[in-house]
Amino acid sequence: MPFARAADGAALHYRVHPVSGCSGEAVPLVLLSGQSNDHHWWDAVRAGFGARFTTVVMDWRGTGESDRPDTDSYSTPGFARDVLAVLDHAGIARAHVYGTSMGGRVAQWLAVDHPARVARLVLGCTSPGAPHGVERGPDVRRALAGSDAVAAERALRELMYTPGWLAEHRGPLHTLGDPTMPAHARRRHLRASARHDAWDALPRITAPTLVVHGTDDAFNPTANAPLLTSRIPGARMALVPGARHAYFEEFAAIATPLVLDFLSEPAEPDEPGASSGTAAPPAS
């Protein structure tokens, strides 16, 4: 298992999956998971991207096989620097980046602060952050923060998926959080995501950007999608009808081709890095 080293020395676990088809796109695809989740967030859908792209998944600090420091090193800009450390260790000069939920917040900073490293950007079920984003309602907050752990998990499941889908998919569900996370890491992930605010920086994003959201997402309200789209120059928006927060899994038959088509579009002549090489073999 490869590990990159963050600037503070934290070990960051990641995996590179070579393209499974006979030939693939030259630019690899980095998939960034949601808050308090590890790389298994993508297990149900990664193969759908792997037929065309070499994919890279990672465990955030505090999750999975990565280190879990109890320090003030958890923030969305900090997580973006962790992604950069993974790209450097894997020998990837430039990649497409698809971030969902908190991963989308991290992806915003990666595209702002390191534009040469991001070919195309997909922001899924995410937001620009406070104070300009639309926060979840008080009823959702109460349901998730209740003292009854079983009821809170049931509420989370229903925020992620539709009742019909849940009736047919008993699990395991890999979008409900890494059960091995220590309490301090959960608190720090929550604080990092809650403090995200990229509003003033979003107009500096130069990568072609697609914003994707489910129309029935109450966990991260759908109203954030047009806000992001309006702030990022040239961004496009696609809404998945009837989808909740985990649109990318439940509605993969719609969402995966949508994202693949966007990522596979020919680069515009003035697109940054349109004619440059993008990938090197992963470091051992």
Score class of each variant (00 low, 15 high):
residue 173 L to E: 12
residue 158 E to F: 02
residue 173 L to Q: 09
residue 151 A to T: 11
residue 149 A to G: 15
residue 119 A to T: 05
residue 139 D to C: 06
residue 114 H to S: 13
residue 143 A to G: 06
residue 164 G to T: 02
residue 119 A to S: 14
residue 152 A to C: 05
residue 144 L to Q: 01
residue 172 P to T: 10
residue 169 H to A: 11
residue 125 C to N: 00
residue 127 S to D: 00
residue 125 C to H: 03
residue 118 V to T: 06
residue 146 G to P: 03
residue 169 H to V: 02
residue 137 G to E: 14
residue 160 M to S: 13
residue 171 G to Y: 09
residue 120 R to W: 06
residue 139 D to N: 09
residue 167 A to Q: 00
residue 118 V to W: 02
residue 149 A to K: 00
residue 167 A to H: 04
residue 148 D to N: 13
residue 155 A to G: 11
residue 123 L to N: 05
residue 160 M to I: 04
residue 138 P to D: 08
residue 131 P to E: 00
residue 128 P to G: 01
residue 141 R to D: 03
residue 116 A to M: 08
residue 173 L to A: 03
residue 152 A to H: 05
residue 151 A to S: 10
residue 171 G to E: 10
residue 148 D to S: 12
residue 119 A to C: 08
residue 146 G to A: 09
residue 169 H to Y: 07
residue 154 R to M: 08
residue 155 A to S: 07
residue 160 M to K: 05
residue 141 R to K: 10
residue 150 V to S: 12
residue 158 E to C: 05
residue 126 T to L: 03
residue 141 R to S: 07
residue 144 L to A: 08
residue 131 P to V: 07
residue 139 D to P: 08
residue 170 R to A: 15
residue 157 R to S: 03
residue 120 R to K: 02
residue 125 C to D: 14
residue 171 G to D: 06
residue 172 P to I: 04
residue 136 R to T: 10
residue 167 A to E: 00
residue 154 R to A: 15
residue 142 R to T: 06
